[in-house]
Design a protein around this nucleic acid. Structure first.
Lengths: 129, 129
DNA sequence: CTGGATCCCAACTGATACTG
DNA sequence: CAGTATCAGTTGGGATCCAG
């Protein structure tokens, strides 16, 4: 008991923990963040409600949370127009766009190799481990 | 109990759910899987215990679980040598190596752009939202 | 030595309700 | 319309024990 209060931050001496690539994975590994990057990249600036309907499966909480993280990381800009119904637009920054390109690389790999992965899974599952 | 059997799989009509890139993220977004790919890619074939000490922060459960997923996905091969103390070697498959290259792309992006991300975070946090 | 099985806690996710 | 707060369900991850 009380051990959880320690938060010892174990001695991860693994090569990649302090590496920036590790942190990047924390970002793009996020389900909604990756979708938002692609969505904003393909459709340009979008309003909060537009994103909400575009992604469709996301809750307000997750949408806001993800956008916040992306804004904090400098991936998107948040523009508030103080009209009567407040209007908020989100747009990919140049940094975000460069990340979009990398994401597309991933997408390309996936499109080419995922069939092999699927096949491997089928074979593995059929082996009834 | 039993509730997990539902697996509702909500009507994600988002563009990327049925897309292979989405599934790829499920794989490489995994903390340990990505580390294992890099580790095996750089050090060649490794034994279970060697991986355990290389990653260091991982528990046996996570290590086994991650290796299982990777084996299932055809990213690594699992070779069992039935010697007296059983010996198990894990090696990256060609498929896994091709993924390693993509991961390196990510790494390169991270090394170049993460400073900007860090700076953006500092600025954002300083704004005391 | 490998790694499967179990228990347990913490974190994340998501639906709903509410506010400016 | 945009966003916050709360609460409940689910999952992930780690320590330990045990089996082959």
């Amino acid at each position: 008991m009380a051990t959880s209060a320690q938060r010892p931050e174990p001695h991860f001496n693994a090569f990649a923990v302090s590496c920036p690539s590790r942190r990047l994975l924390d970002t793009i590994g996020d389900k909604w963040v990756s979708l938002l990057i692609v969505g904003l990249g393909l459709h340009g600036p979008l309003r909060y409600s537009e994103l909400s309907s575009l992604i469709a499966g996301v809750s307000q909480k997750m949408l806001t949370q993800s956008l916040r993280r992306m804004e904090r990381d400098g991936l998107v800009t948040r523009t508030v127009t103080p009209s009567i119904p407040v209007r908020v637009d989100y747009e990919l920054t140049p940094l975000g766009q460069s990340l979009l390109e990398v994401m597309c690389r991933l997408k390309e790999w996936a499109e080419v190799h995922m069939p092999q992965v699927e096949a491997a899974r089928a074979t593995y599952d059929a082996a009834t481990h």
